[in-house]
């Protein structure tokens, strides 16, 4: 129960951050990605501030033996760089560049009650299912999770 409330609080904070920084606006994201247009560097500052803040809190969190409300830290344990990582990133980037939405802002944009985000999210869910059903998912190496 505490875990669920904590996740809700973190989600609200995350959505607030996306809204305050206007990352929920695809036009603003595309204005960053378009170096030849009237370039808007805002997204870079959002990322730098987010990474720095997260790194600081992660450091404090990892100084404790375990999370406050859970038994272990769930950290991706993989270190290898494979083709899937790069190809997946490239495919995601093409979709991101076509419209200006990545998963977080697309979900947060449901707050604006626009049909566009519902359409995008339905297609995104379909894309995830397509991956799940593809031979690629079956060939996937088992997930290794590092506990602590």
């Amino acid at each position: 129960m505490r875990q669920v409330v904590a996740a809700l609080a973190a989600g609200i904070l995350f959505g607030l951050g996306l809204s305050v920084s206007q990352m929920t606006n695809p036009g603003k994201v595309l204005a960053f990605l378009d170096f030849l247009g009237p370039w808007d560097p805002s997204l870079a500052l959002v990322l730098i501030a987010a990474v720095t803040t997260a790194a600081a809190v992660f450091r404090v969190a990892r100084s404790r033996p375990r999370p406050l409300f859970a038994t272990s830290f769930q950290v991706p344990g993989r270190r290898d760089i494979d083709a899937r990582l790069v190809i997946g990133g490239v495919l995601f980037g093409v979709g991101w560049g076509l419209v200006g939405w990545c998963p977080g802002p697309a979900i947060a944009s449901l707050a604006l009650a626009r049909w566009e985000s519902a359409a995008f999210l339905a297609a995104m869910a379909a894309g995830m299912l397509a991956y799940r059903l593809s031979p690629l998912a079956r060939a996937e190496a088992p997930k290794t999770e590092l506990t602590r």
């Binding site: 607030l16 997260a54 404090v60 272990s72 830290f73």
Partner: peptide, 23 residues
Amino acid sequence: SALIGGCLIGGAAGLLFWLDGRI
């Protein structure tokens, strides 16, 4: 607003990890 929003996003990610141990 980019810096403030970014700090909120990073803080949220940190909070989820600190409390629930989740990325």
